[in-house]
Design a protein around this nucleic acid. Structure first.
Lengths: 335, 335
DNA sequence: TGGGGCAACGTGAACGTTCACGCAGCTGCT
DNA sequence: AGCAGCTGCGTGAACGTTCACGTTGCCCCA
């Protein structure tokens, strides 16, 4: 039917197939497809039409091989289901798209995957890597070789760049606020995932000590359901907690639900502070007081670091390549 | 310092640099790097060490050129900030990762971008495309040529595959439930984005007619804040609405907030039904009654369609390539 | 009438891998 | 002694593009 030229029907069309079908050379096809000069309007149209008919699509590999590659960055995320991460991912994608880069996302939360698996999958495909990689950030950097890795919330890792958070500062803000509300028996609801769990509760404990606040720590998986269950147990037994600081807003939401389910008023009987500052917090009842991060700034910073590292204007491991960001207390209704 | 061989310091190391430094041939380096047979353990180790020292990383372009490409699929999303989309994206990423594919994500919601922009960015980079592309699905398919596109919620588009939703069915479920609760003056809070806005409100209107329910339709942007504002206006004037069906859970959450802010009880004074069934709904107070989609199934289905289309076991445009999924009513507290 | 210049098109080379061979040298069996 | 077979390694070719030149034909002006 359609004149398929000599192409063996089944393999994809190459530039040579188009050239043959149009009776021109490779280069002329290139000129037509890429809107380059040095070709007559007639020929251009004719070639484009034939290319479309043949279903010709230039090979991104051949193109990448001969032209310098377009930067593509890997984004390793533990769980797109936790609203914190899409909020972060969104800002990374935005910043990357603005630079003409593209982003390959890997969510290693499904099944039993670890950050190391994600890094292994991404490494052969990308020029740089951003991610919540703890506790496998070093392994990820090894897999990437010279190519830069920016690790989030993974302090002390040997990656080219990193962004960490000042949990001492966060704990100070939160505990001071809870104390000023009259809370005396405060619980720190930590996540059992990621690396710096130890550092976080250590920070919270240290700050509690200096400010003379009674602080107990307990752990749960980083989800609303797990937090709910944990707080349910907590609320049931012993001396009642009158303030909860959660490791993220999702866990705080779960805590809220559990408290309400057990008939305790928030913030009346127990105040709750979250962490992250995701939009979810404003939708809850009561609206969530939280330690907010400027999430768009975090994504921008990560991509900015990568840009510096890739261009060489930032040397890997240098002080400027390791940012420490601070949370800000946003007081709403829950505390 | 380190013996950099003849490599011009600055260009990236190639397989030839490694071969020269190790005093072996290209092929032996290949054998060492890819754990192939036909090489002595000693040589393998030596070559791997030298490769690491030189920071050698095989070019994914050269590799892709000579071996059949690893499938990479584009995922075009309007707004990662709306929790529906990460939930969907998460299941797509999971299904794709399971097949050894990788996923390039483009969020075209930032700035003034449209689905067409996202498709244009992704087209040169991927072998297939999944996305909420309305109303530019046809354009996206054109950009992709023969490569398959699976469009979501974009019925009637000329894409190779599609997944649509039965809004008549959804409207029937919701309106019947609201009617059974005694609601008589119901509002449909539609989104002003995407293509099938018309079809959705048409479906709702049709169903309202058959069931003899009074239905007014109003529109807002697809965010909690916009929904809040819209409902605020609605609640202020005229005859009070006693039931709201929102286009998605995020808008429903906004509606909830607005109603409560204006002192109206939910569901006492006004019932609210959302759409999507994202986890957020369970965290709200009252918990959100919603028309739920099995989101993981949607992602699996999209990737499954793509697999069929890529392998040729599914012919593009055939009936089996166009799925229609149904929502299920999950009754919680808000209606 | 010669030739400078431009428009339109073609050709060798290069990008960095892997594939499919080929070729030594050694081992062990008949 | 002869040779098949294995181990370990090397070489030409191919993948599909673009870059940097060449080459042709034609117009126009001195």
């Amino acid at each position: 039917m359609t004149p398929r030229s000599t192409r063996p029907t089944g393999k994809r069309a190459t530039i040579l197939d188009v050239a043959a079908a149009a009776g021109v050379s490779r280069q002329t096809v290139t000129r037509a497809m890429n809107d380059m000069a040095g070709i007559s309007p007639d020929t251009r149209q004719r070639v484009q039409k034939i290319a479309a008919e043949l279903g010709y699509t230039p090979s991104r590999f051949a193109k990448g091989l001969v032209q310098g590659a377009r930067v593509s960055v890997g984004l390793a995320i533990p769980d797109l289901t936790n609203p914190y991460f899409p909020a972060f991912a969104s800002s990374v994608v935005e910043a990357a798209t603005g630079r003409g880069w593209n982003v390959v996302v890997d969510d290693y939360g499904h099944g039993t995957g670890s950050a190391a698996d994600a890094a292994a999958r991404l490494a052969p495909q990308v020029d740089a890597l951003i991610g919540y990689l703890a506790p496998h950030a070093d392994e990820a950097q090894a897999l990437m070789g010279r190519r830069p890795v920016v690790a989030l919330d993974s302090p002390g890792a040997g990656t080219a760049g990193s962004i960490s958070f000042d949990y001492h500062h966060a704990a100070r803000l939160a505990l001071a606020h809870l104390a000023s509300r009259g809370c005396t028996n405060i619980a720190f609801l930590d996540s059992d995932q990621g690396a710096p769990a130890g550092s976080r509760s250590a920070a919270a404990a240290a700050v509690a000590l200096e400010s003379g606040v009674q602080l107990t720590r307990f752990q749960a998986a980083s989800s609303a359901a797990a937090a709910k269950a944990a707080v349910g147990v907590l609320a049931a037994g012993g001396r009642p907690v009158d303030g909860i600081l959660a490791f993220n807003d999702l866990m705080a939401a779960g805590a809220l639900k559990a408290l309400q389910a057990s008939g305790r008023a928030v913030p009346g009987d127990c105040a709750v502070i979250g962490m992250d500052g995701i939009p979810l917090g404003e939708l809850l009842t009561p609206e969530l007081t939280t330690l907010a991060l400027d999430l768009r700034a975090v994504g921008r910073a990560a991509v900015g670091l990568l840009e510096g590292l890739l261009s060489g204007s930032l040397t890997e491991g240098s002080a400027e390549a390791h940012l420490i960001l601070r949370h800000e207390l946003v007081v709403r209704q829950s505390a």
